[in-house]
Design a protein around this nucleic acid. Structure first.
Lengths: 140, 140
DNA sequence: CGCCAATTCACCCGAAAGAATGAGTGGGAT
DNA sequence: ATCCCACTCATTCTTTCGGGTGAATTGGCG
């Protein structure tokens, strides 16, 4: 990212330098101002197009839109990190006891988390929670 | 498409017009040439970015490979139609009782179906069954 | 017709899940 | 220092699941 910004800055600097040179030449040769301006306009239009392409090309390449977590829903519903962990394991088909073992907590804790999770998701069963969570992009 | 080209042409015409006006004003007020050129450069850079974005902002079509039922798995595992119905409703987060109501059968029947389903899928919990069924393309 | 598979249902029992409640602890913010 | 919140855990109780078993029925097929 920093490299990208640096490259853009460098490109701009080079362009400004070129502009100066062009300016000097044209002033010396005493060409019309309109022509000079036209050159500059074309130049910077090209630069703009280039920049525009750079910024958007990547989006086209991404064919398979991968899962992207919906932070808004998480914060709006007040779902904590731990609850999310439980949710993910739940979606993997693990039983509460297995989740407890995996998270190194007690079964009761997992039950508490899942219970809170259900109320936050507005559901009453784990299968529904999984469905809902996928709809809300909380899990892949 | 023609509308787009027309719009671009129009935009360019307007920009040239604005350029002329700016040019006039700056010449009259006798400001520095560098400043004037800077304005033009920024202007056309913006134009270029805009054009670049317009031309490349292809809608990222979500290639969501549509579900296509895996008949082979169904027959190989000997899963009946009724069992599949139960599976689908199960994947929708319905409880056995709700499935029973929806299919107009008794709770015990649903239990039998789901039980047979689990053994055919090689799982022991409904959440796992849903996972597995999705992997096997038995449900979307 | 007799066989088979699918479907339906029942009963029992243990395990798991879920609801409700209370409570202790530790880290962060005020 | 105090308060809040996430996290933790426990207990009790009810509901739901899931396994196991047995059995009646129905429709298709040889």
């Amino acid at each position: 990212m920093k490299k990208t910004i640096f490259l853009y800055g460098l490109a701009l600097a080079v362009l400004i330098l070129i502009m100066r040179v062009i300016e000097y030449r044209f002033l010396v040769r005493d060409l019309t101002l309109e022509f000079y301006i036209g050159i500059v306009a074309v130049f910077f239009t090209a630069l703009g197009i280039w920049v525009g392409l750079r910024f958007t090309r990547k989006k086209v390449v991404v064919i398979h839109p991968e899962f992207q977590f919906n932070e808004k829903e998480q914060s709006q519903r007040g779902i904590s990190k731990r609850e999310l962990e439980v949710l993910e394991l739940m979606a993997q088909g693990l039983a509460n006891q297995e989740i407890a073992d995996k998270l190194f907590v007690s079964l009761n804790t997992v039950k508490t988390h899942s219970s809170n999770l259900f109320s936050k998701l507005g559901v009453s069963r784990r299968t529904q929670a999984i469905q809902k969570a996928k709809e809300l992009n909380l899990i892949p």
